[in-house]
Amino acid sequence: MKIAVLYGGTSGEREVSLSTGKGIIKALENKGHIVTPIDFSPDKIEEVLKLKVDLVFIGLHGRFGEDGKIQGLLDMLEIPYVGSGVLASALAMDKAKSKQIFSLNGLHTAKSEVYDVTDETRFDRIEKEIKRAFKLPFVIKPNQEGSTLGLSIVKNEKDIRSAIVMAAKSDSMILVEDYVKGREVTVPVMGIKGEEQALPVIEIIPKNDYYDFDSKYKPGGSEHIVPAKVDEKLTTQLKEDAVTAHQLLDCDVYSRVDFIINEENEPIILEVNTLPGMTPTSLFPDSAQEIGLSYDDLIEKFVELSQSNKEKKV
């Protein structure tokens, strides 16, 4: 097949996306596809408009890649692509909106509030509202950002303002939520629409205090335990909750769902990643390896699933 790979981008996750893109390009070439690589940015839309390919593989992360915008452009051009569509991408990227959907459908979420930070003169009021609504420690992060960029775990009231300022650099809306102490796990999901299945659960043991950017992407930054050492009942619940979350947002082909297992042994859903990292240290390929899928085979599987879903739509 002729497949274009969009990667790079302009978000704070550009470096990660460059690594993801290189991995995808190599895997597709190894499988015999003709690949057109595009280090994408909004000023390169002309390259996308001129594309003559069978499929686009989106290896972008963050804004203009994971938020539904590039998906909308490809839809208008009637070019099929791997992964979730406009609505699912936008909903998953908007943490506050997706948490509302999860909570309304019985999935456990941490208590949270969203605040508009477009006007710096309101920061004093926002800080007071946060103090009234939350008990230390709590998390402040951009509402639409990935890879824990702009995230702070606030343990002291004097740090609230700086956490607001840092999160506001990445987004016009910030999310404040209870800090849930527990074990960090993630569950990859993939499959034909309506028949998705969860892959082995992964436990993440970061070398730092929490699973931050360095823990995610620097070699040795975290340990991935696959399958996670959790009992059978909890494993089943995590997998069921992950598939439910994937389907609630109407995700397509694949996603990765992040959880914290709290001290009561309950899975608290954090977010759904519609374009999870596919770098050499990424989680999804680790889980796929456990069921006998090499990196190259995993990428090829995404292509096959995209074709199957396209045929179902027709």
Rank of each mutant, 00 (worst) to 15 (best):
L270D: 00
A228W: 13
V180R: 02
G23C: 06
T281M: 11
Q71C: 07
V56D: 09
A133Q: 12
K135R: 14
K312R: 13
P206I: 13
H33C: 11
A228P: 02
S11D: 04
N273Q: 11
M190W: 08
T244D: 03
E203S: 09
G191P: 02
I3E: 01
A167I: 03
V257F: 10
L49C: 10
S294L: 12
V35D: 04
V253W: 02
S98N: 06
L107N: 02
I205Y: 00
V82S: 09
S112F: 15
T118K: 15
L49H: 11
E127T: 04
L249Y: 04
V53D: 05
V139T: 03
A110S: 14
G8H: 01
V117F: 14
K50D: 12
G182A: 08
P219M: 06
L283W: 02
R183I: 00
K99T: 05
V176Q: 09
A4M: 05
S222T: 03
V226L: 08
G72I: 15
H108Y: 13
G12L: 00
A90P: 04
V154D: 04
M278N: 07
I45G: 03
K301S: 11
V226H: 00
E311L: 13
E78D: 14
K169P: 08
I160L: 06
M278I: 03
G221Q: 05
V185I: 12
P42V: 15
K155S: 09
G83T: 13
S11W: 07
K155H: 08
A163I: 12
A168C: 03
I153M: 02
T281P: 06
N208S: 15
D252N: 13
D54T: 07
E223L: 14
L234I: 13
T36F: 10
S17D: 04
K181Q: 11
C251V: 06
F213R: 03
A133W: 00
I25H: 06
L87F: 09
L249H: 05
K44V: 02
I3K: 02
F134K: 06
V139K: 06
V243Y: 01
I164Q: 02
G277F: 04
T10I: 11
S287C: 11
T118S: 14
S255M: 08
K26R: 09
Q237Y: 06
I269N: 02
Y7M: 11
T279Y: 12
K301W: 04
L151A: 07
F259N: 00
T121W: 01
K155Y: 05
T20M: 03
A90C: 12
R132W: 03
M278E: 06
L151Y: 02
T236N: 14
I70W: 13
S308M: 15
V165Y: 08
A96V: 14
D241L: 09
L77N: 07
